[in-house]
Nucleic acid binder design. Structure first.
Length: 269
DNA sequence: CTGAGATCCTGTCTGC
DNA sequence: TGCAGACAGGATCTCA
């Protein structure tokens, strides 16, 4: 589920846990993408969360002497429950328990992960990540320089978290559509002005998605957890053979690097 | 170093 | 209805 906007939405929903003390942590299934540290509860129990923030698609919980790194993978969610609710769902793998409530980590496919570390910036998952797409460093000049050495297609390039973080399969297609760039183009053939379009449209689309996500926070975090995940107006993703929003052409679906790509071969020709 | 393909895992949908 | 196979919003790993 989560690309940058969904993780950001999740972050905003759990911001209220800042300044709260973790009483304990229960790991019901440590077999996530990586095995969860068996000493996690011992390390963090009784400690106060100073701050919760996002880096790429990771949520970072900052404590005085440790940091907790949470990734939601493809299917992970966090939900807030009352402390005394003994209501578990399938694939609830971990829970952070606080005085009044608790934060439940659910992930059916277990592609997500939970790590405890002394310095998240030096952690192997974080240390070689590219710039945040909403930051100033992700600009035309950065992208233009970066693509010069690349031999992969532009869609794969912007999904590579070493080049820029937070963009996943949905937004990659949406960004390239809005930028009128064919996803099959070799990254190094993208022009300077197209780099300008890609960076600015990335910011526009991601910000818009965050904005919409913010309106469905309550649903997203309902105790039942079944409420519909928000979807911004998607122009190409999952619209194979539907009419393009800009012309009369039908949207194409192809496979690139084993992922689905959607585009209009007229508008993005 | 790069890039392509396999891989981890469960749930859901489609077609026979 | 049953069941096999494809596919899903991620990203690492292995190998050429």
């Amino acid at each position: 589920m989560p690309e940058l906007p969904e993780v950001e939405t999740t972050l905003r929903a759990i911001k209220s846990f800042e300044e709260k003390i973790v009483e304990s942590i229960s790991i019901h299934n440590p077999n996530l993408r990586w095995l969860v540290d068996k000493d996690i509860s011992q390390k963090l129990s009784g400690k106060k969360i100073n701050q919760i923030f996002r880096r790429a698609k990771y949520l970072i919980f900052d404590f005085d002497d440790y940091q907790l790194i949470v990734h939601l993978g493809m299917s992970g969610t966090l939900r807030i429950m009352n402390r005394k609710d003994n209501f578990f769902k399938k694939h609830d793998h971990a829970e952070l328990i606080f005085e009044d409530n608790k934060l439940i980590y659910n992930d059916p496919r277990r592609f997500g992960s939970i790590h405890v570390t002394k310095s998240y910036k030096d952690h192997f998952l974080i240390s070689s990540l590219g710039p945040e797409p909403l930051s100033r460093s992700f600009c035309k000049d950065y992208l233009f320089k970066k693509i010069q050495n690349s031999k992969t297609n532009i869609k794969n390039f912007i999904m590579n978290q070493k080049n820029v973080v937070g963009i996943g399969n949905i937004y990659a297609s949406e960004i390239l559509f809005r930028s009128s760039v064919d996803p099959r183009r070799l990254a190094q053939t993208i022009s300077n002005s197209e780099c300008n379009l890609i960076t600015s449209n990335s910011k526009i689309i991601l910000k818009e998605a965050i904005k919409v996500g913010g309106t469905t926070l309550k649903d997203f975090f309902s105790a039942e957890g079944s409420a519909g995940y928000f979807k911004i107006q998607l122009n190409v993703y999952d619209r194979e053979n539907e009419v393009c929003v800009n012309c009369e052409n039908l949207i194409s679906k192809i496979t690139q690097n084993q992922r689905a790509s959607y585009f209009c071969n007229i508008c993005q020709g």
